[in-house]
Amino acid sequence: MEAAAKGASAGASSKADSLLNRTMMQLLEHVEYRLITGGEDLEAIYRLRYQSYLKSGMCGPIASGMFEDRWDNLPNSYRFGVYCYGELVSTLRFHYISAAQPYSPSIDAYPEVLLERLARGETFIDGTRFATDPDAAPAPGVLPFLTLRIAMVASNYFGQDSVLTPVKVEHSHFYARFFNAVQKSEAKQFPGVLAPIALFEIPAGENMRRTLERFPFYQSTPTEQRLMFGNPAINRLTPLSIVPTAKYYRAAA
């Protein structure tokens, strides 16, 4: 009886994964990622952050209507907007952290977890300032997958030890289910936001390989990886637009 229940659960999970993969591969035909460093697009992602954070209680009112912070313009910072059918639907920022550039919000928030590991030579991708516009979503529930695909492209490019994802504990089930994220700290005050945030870590290596096999829409070609992360281009005024390459990666690998 127990074996039958487990088999049914596995079958349902596999069916759900297949539906998600089909939906995402179709949507990626209409998606572009923009590496944003200035101009109106930068203001747009700051406004989206603010609207999302204000609505969720992550921040209070800000007169400018934009949410930016002291980590945005660091040399190891990458700010992205996700556009679907030409409309901004979400945004995410990354810092690539190493002993040479130990700069990111998570380093400041969780030094007891990360500083010793950096000194040992470990490297990390720190994903923060995730914000979405649910009203602009092309389909229910897809924005986290469209947005966090950036983390998978970054992981393939940098080859870091882990991806860091500071999140509310109540949101952690998503990261554990789809990325095998592991909680590394208790929830605590996080720089720039009101809600307590815990640090979760997504191991690279074999874990990332299995995730890419399970969800092929996370795959990317080396060309896409280089365009997204080969140069932060902090002073670029015109955003660099990158088209997802999941359907091409096998031929280009």
Rank of each mutant, 00 (worst) to 15 (best):
T245E: 14
E43D: 15
W71H: 10
E40R: 15
E43R: 14
Q51D: 12
A253S: 10
A44D: 08
D126Q: 05
G192M: 03
E224P: 06
S104H: 08
R34N: 07
Q189R: 11
P102R: 02
E2R: 11
A251G: 09
L240Q: 01
G192D: 07
G121W: 10
A195E: 10
A16E: 11
T238R: 13
L74E: 02
S106T: 10
A176V: 15
A252Y: 14
A246W: 00
A63M: 06
A181R: 04
G11M: 09
Y103D: 15
M58R: 11
S56T: 12
L42S: 09
M152C: 14
S56I: 05
F229K: 00
F200I: 04
A8N: 07
L27W: 08
V31G: 03
E186T: 10
N235G: 13
V153D: 04
E116P: 01
A44S: 13
G39F: 06
M24D: 05
E206D: 10
P216G: 07
R236S: 15
E116T: 02
I36W: 00
V153C: 11
L88H: 06
E224F: 01
L48N: 04
L115F: 11
Y78E: 03
P191V: 02
F179T: 07
D69Q: 09
T238H: 09
Y50P: 00
G65L: 00
L237K: 12
